[in-house]
């Protein structure tokens, strides 16, 4: 997806499903994925249907992804950080011991 011309962006490298993609500082994870052409962010726990970003403002919880092993993260409310490992969330999130940091 094309981006409009901007002044002075700092690019950040992140990973989606094991593939390195480029993003810019200040991007939400959702914006970064969409700008790289990814629309399908997760499968639902009920019917396994595909979902992606919908509201982009933290309301709908449809853009849930797994980031650095932590599930149920709202991609539209989380800013990209260099080296983030992002995965599609398949069904309900897994619960495991973690330190709660992104």
């Amino acid at each position: 997806m094309p981006r409009l011309d901007r002044n002075g962006d700092t690019s950040v490298s992140i990973e989606f499903e094991g593939v390195a993609i480029s993003a810019f500082e200040g991007d939400s994870v959702a914006a970064a994925l969409l700008s790289n052409g990814y629309r399908n962010f997760r499968d639902t726990p009920v019917n396994g249907a595909s979902r992606g970003a919908f509201c982009m403002m933290g309301v709908c919880f449809d853009c849930l992804v797994e980031i650095n092993g932590i599930g149920n993260i709202q991609a539209c409310m989380t800013e990209v950080r260099a080296g983030m490992h992002i995965r599609r969330q398949r069904g309900a999130r897994d619960i495991h011991a973690q330190d709660g940091s992104l």
Binding site: M1, L4, R6, S35, R39, F41, M56, M57
Partner: peptide
């Protein structure tokens, strides 16, 4: 309306405001 690629127009505007992301 749940299919990926279907979004709010407000969501499209948020994308414009954050990083100038567009969906042609």
């Amino acid at each position: 309306w749940t299919l990926p690629g279907v979004m709010g127009a407000g969501a499209a505007q948020v994308l414009l405001k954050t990083g100038g992301v567009t969906l042609p």
